[in-house]
């Protein structure tokens, strides 16, 4: 029986900028930041109250995994906002919304009442979409 998810992956277009976004703006904690040689970097962050879930900020760059064509396609899709990457929750959506807005996070939808609570939508520095929810 599967019990938990411990690692997941968000594809980003620039790891320095993603570090700034996830750590300095969203307030995530750095779990591992390790140079892997030849420009590769293993960068994982965790939500502040969920230290057991590592989110890998994986760079879309040409290398063993991605050829040039794939990088071009993925970059276009990420920038276009094709990927909804995750749902984050918070204790107080209005406070979190105001704080993230003050830090320059771009929201696509302000806090709105839904049947499951309140939800806002924002994008990261690459173009990945996220729900930010306060569950009822």
């Amino acid at each position: 029986m599967i019990s938990k998810i411990t690692h997941t992956c968000i594809y980003v277009l620039n790891q320095d900028s993603a570090y700034d976004f996830y750590v300095n703006k969203l307030g995530f904690k750095v779990h591992t930041d390790a140079p892997m040689g030849e420009g590769a970097r293993w960068l994982t962050v965790t939500p502040p109250d969920q230290p057991e879930l590592e989110i890998t900020l994986f760079l879309v760059a040409e290398g063993p995994l991605f050829d040039g064509e794939t990088v071009k396609t993925m970059t276009t899709l990420i920038k276009k906002g094709t990927f909804g990457a995750a749902v984050f929750t918070c204790k107080d959506l209005l406070a979190t919304y105001e704080e993230l807005k003050a830090k320059g996070v771009v929201f696509k939808k302000p806090p709105t009442k839904e049947f499951y609570g309140y939800e806002a939508l924002f994008v990261d520095d690459s173009g990945n979409w996220f729900s930010l929810a306060q569950l009822a």
Binding site: C9, T32, M36, G37, W42, P64, L65
Partner: peptide
Amino acid sequence: IIKENPLRYVPHCFVETHGLSK
């Protein structure tokens, strides 16, 4: 440990699929 063996902190699914072992 990270400096000596960075792959130790990377789950194998990422190592294999993302070409990190090469």
